[in-house]
Amino acid sequence: MSSKRLLNLRSYIPGTLFILPAFALFAVFIFIPLVYGIYMSFTDYGGFNVKANFIGLDNYISLFKDDYFLVSLKNNLIYTVLFVPLTMLLALLAAVALNGVRHLRKFFRMSFYFPYITSMVSIAIVWGLLFNPLSGPVNQILKAVGIANPPEWLMSSKWALLAIVIVAVWKSFGYYMIILLAGIQGIPEHLYESAKLDGANKFQQFIYITLPSLSPTLFMVLILTIINSFQVFDLVSVMTDGGPGRSTNVLVFRIYQEAFINYQMGYAAAMSTVLFIIIMVISLIQFRLEKKWVTY
């Protein structure tokens, strides 16, 4: 080996050493589990030191005949369909309103953002009490405004999922509001000025300038909220434990139960692969569409 080549190799040493801790952690705790998980999903592995047998596609075949799994998938889709538009709408309204005021801005921003940084467990416990059908403030308010028979919320299999969506929207809209606010503030002022010269009112400015200019940010928030909606766990675990019945059982909760309560690790790994594929498909759609969405 020539001395020049050796010198060249040597120049890689510091960089390699600097990256080594992160790389080792990534390899052992993320990459190996990812590959191992795919293998596991083809076995009947039962956790800890139980011997696993290779069973081919059996887990995946049973998965799509498994009522419980399909119910959790359906619940999760309902959750997504409610959570995503509600969160985006509230975040957008808050961002636009906040951009339009000059008083108390910091207070508004902090109070909308605050729920996001508090723990899911604490707020799930609080909201559990707020939603109490008899003594909780939610129904007290509903009764006060004239609704004689307000829902039983967490005790009703019809309303429990909606109650969880309400809490999730309340908790996270402030976070997306900040992202959208940054987007709105990045819109060049001259666009508004020329619109004003053309006689556009505030509403028209919003429709014809703010919304199109914000579309890349809105699209990103859309993807983030969808991905986020497939990770819901804490609220379900604390507020309803998946119930009443199976009415609030969602994907990650089902994976958790199967893996860590029933010790059906192989089966749970197959469910995890389904979750992984769902998220990957959403991400790929994002990559595909991202460029088309820049409209200005």
Partner: peptide, 11 residues
């Protein structure tokens, strides 16, 4: 969440 099961096994 999509790797928590095999990660648990590795750990």
């Amino acid at each position: 969440h999509s790797i928590m099961v095999p990660q648990f096994s590795v750990v």
